[in-house]
Simulated assay, not measured.
Amino acid sequence: MFLDVVMAGISVPPAPGEEVWATDRALSPGGIANAAVGAARLGASTALVTAIGDDEVGDLVSDMLGAEKRLSLAPSGRQRGMQTALSVALSTAEDRSFISHGQLDPIDLASEVDAVGHAATMFVALDLELPTWVRKRRAAGTTVFGGVGWDERHGWSDDVLTQLQHVDVFVLNEREALSYTRTSTVEHAISRLGEFVAMTVITRGPSGALAFDAGSGVLSESPGIRVRAVDPTGAGDEFVAALMRTASSDMAVADRLLFANLCASYTASGLGGAVSNPTLHGLESWLLGHRSEIAADTSAVSDLITAWIDDCGHADQALPSSPSQTQPTRKEK
Rank of each mutant, 00 (worst) to 15 (best):
V5W: 12
V6T: 05
M7W: 06
P14W: 11
A15Q: 11
P16I: 09
P16R: 08
E18V: 07
V20L: 14
R25Q: 05
L27D: 04
P29C: 04
G30M: 15
G30N: 09
I32F: 08
N34S: 08
V37F: 11
G38M: 09
A44V: 05
S45G: 04
T50Q: 15
I52P: 05
D54P: 03
D54H: 03
D55R: 07
D55V: 07
D55L: 08
L65P: 00
K69Q: 06
L73K: 08
R78T: 05
Q79L: 11
M82S: 04
L86A: 06
L90D: 00
D95I: 03
S97C: 10
F98M: 09
A110D: 04
V113S: 05
V124H: 02
D127H: 05
E129R: 01
P131V: 14
V134Y: 03
R138Y: 05
A139I: 10
A140M: 02
A140S: 13
T142V: 06
V144N: 05
G149P: 03
G155S: 09
D159R: 14
L161C: 07
T162W: 03
Q163D: 07
L164D: 08
L164I: 09
N173A: 14
R175F: 01
Y180L: 09
S191V: 04
L193R: 08
E195N: 11
A198V: 00
A198G: 06
M199E: 02
G205R: 04
A209R: 10
F212V: 10
F212G: 11
L219W: 03
T233V: 12
A235C: 05
G236I: 01
E238N: 12
F239H: 04
F239A: 02
V240G: 03
A242I: 10
R245M: 13
R245F: 02
D250Q: 12
M251Y: 06
A252V: 09
D255W: 14
D255E: 13
A260E: 02
N261R: 12
N261S: 15
L262G: 04
A264Q: 00
S265A: 15
Y266T: 00
A268S: 15
L271K: 10
L271E: 04
L271C: 08
S276G: 12
T279E: 00
G282A: 10
G282N: 04
E284Y: 11
E284K: 13
L287T: 00
H290S: 05
H290P: 03
R291Q: 15
S292L: 14
A296R: 08
A296K: 00
T298S: 06
D303P: 01
I305V: 07
I305Y: 02
I305H: 00
T306C: 03
A307Y: 00
W308E: 11
D316A: 00
Q317S: 08
A318R: 05
S321E: 13
E332W: 11
E332R: 14
